[in-house]
């Protein structure tokens, strides 16, 4: 049985103008698997509560961290992204989800496709790989609107052996000094950056339109549907 646990924000990290990472201290928390999410509950002074699900950003066995993308008309994300501070009390329940997870030594190769804040659970997998020094080849293609929306930019760029990281910008104003990919993820983009579809698992996370387009492009490349795991939001 998963119970609600008291949690305290211990650290806030401004990732971008609109996204914040909160590190949480959760007494009694065991750990999570890379790719899982947690339920997070806030309680107003009159007892009113609001609950949302957030992907875990941190590697397993590291302090629990979530990254919250502010949705301007949202009820919970503006509080978490802008107001929550070290000392803020929340509750968490989890970890949840036994499907969209990566375990070391389970697959020949990992392909990660992220749209927007869909990078969060995939970053947990990449962090897990780096922390363990796991040799599984990782190929990440990350689609973001503009450079200032890229989460974990420096960390993603610091690739270790066996990692291939590509960021593609989909917005209209591409900075002149941008040397990465541009344009939405399609079969051509993936063909340039992904290995041939033999063995391995592919994890796709992002808004519905991104996941649909990415999964369709993977099919064009011959990636089998049973090797693709998806997680969508919005």
């Amino acid at each position: 049985m998963l119970r609600w646990r008291q949690a305290t924000v211990t650290q806030r990290i401004a990732e971008t103008d609109s996204a914040t990472t909160l590190v949480l201290d959760v007494p009694g928390w065991t750990t999570h698997r890379a790719g899982q999410h947690v339920d997070l509950r806030l309680t107003a002074p009159d007892g009113y509560q609001a609950t949302r699900s957030y992907s875990v950003a941190s590697a397993p066995a590291r302090p629990l961290a979530i990254t919250v993308q502010r949705v301007d008309d949202g009820e919970v994300s503006p509080f978490l992204a802008d107001v929550a501070r070290p000392g803020t009390a929340v509750e968490v329940r989890g970890p949840v989800g036994g499907w969209f997870v990566w375990e070391p030594n389970t697959t020949d190769r990992v392909v990660l496709l992220a749209g927007g804040s869909g990078i969060v659970p995939l970053a947990s997998m990449l962090r897990h790989r780096r922390r363990l020094g796991d040799p599984t080849p990782f190929h990440l293609v990350y689609s973001a609107r503009t450079p200032d929306r890229i989460l974990y930019r420096d960390e993603l760029a610091a690739t270790t052996e066996g990692e291939h990281v590509v960021i593609t910008l989909t917005g209209d104003d591409i900075p002149p000094d941008w040397d990465g990919e541009t344009g939405r993820v399609d079969a051509q983009t993936l063909r340039r950056h992904l290995p041939a579809p033999s063995g391995g698992l592919t994890y796709v996370c992002g808004p519905t339109a991104f996941v649909e387009a990415a999964a369709a492009s993977l099919a064009v490349l011959g990636y089998g549907p049973t090797t693709i795991r998806t997680e969508r939001f919005g």
Partner: peptide
Amino acid sequence: MSVTAGFGGRRG
């Protein structure tokens, strides 16, 4: 249950 300081919430 502990109160989350600063959270007001939105009721419908």
